[in-house]
Amino acid sequence: MTDTQLLQSYLLRLADSDMILGQRLCELCGKAPALEEEMALMNVALDLVGQARNWYEYVAELEDQGRDADMLAFRRDAHEYRNLLLTEQPNGDYAVTMARQFFFDVWHYHTLQSLVNAPDERIAGIAAKALKEVTYHLRRSSEWIKRLGDGTEESHRRMQDAVDLLWRFTGELIQPDEVDQQIAKAGIGPDPEQLRDDWRGMVKAVLQEATLTPQPDDAWMYLGGKRGEHTEHLGFILAEMQFLQRAYPDAKVW
């Protein structure tokens, strides 16, 4: 794998995770539990889709095959998507939506903190912008974990159920594969061990404050998103997200 291919692979993962979680959150448009929550969710989704576009544009330039950001987002099939499995999980109840967001935000925040120091100015620039936004995402999702976890009997039970349900998809966030290791070695992405410690440290601290219990570190984990092996959910997301572009490729006026 050349350096450029390595970079493409890594950045495509970031773009795809942003894109799919953004799309998932958009499903709540018009049916969030409260008006303020709806606005917040849509704003987070907008940030993520904007960040995805910034990464896709760079990936498209690197691969130099005449594809643009839209083609990368709307003309690839599920097996070509490299998003984290966590991001494609259904919204569930609000505890699931916020647990998914929180696990992702902690990973996203620490990953971006490394990327802002990448020697590649384009990467550092996109990451610096995203980091400002993601800091707000993390602040908000942490608050929800605490409010629901340390809330009523029912909110606590549901929040704990959400943590237990989604935990199996978090291994991928902190278990490095070849690409993660190479990208760390190149001084671009986070050091895998550091990322794992930061993620576990922050997640456990917030869960503890929320009176919630994490699963053990050696719990069994689903892996595969980073190599294109997805849960059944991704196909349905893409079917909805890509319909228009697939039905009317290259349409200039909608």
């Binding site: 917040a40 987070v44 907008l46 602040r139 908000r140 608050e143």
Partner: peptide, 11 residues
């Protein structure tokens, strides 16, 4: 709310 009518605002 942490987010207002646009991403740049809080309510």
């Amino acid at each position: 709310s942490e987010f207002g009518s646009t991403a740049c605002k809080a309510l």
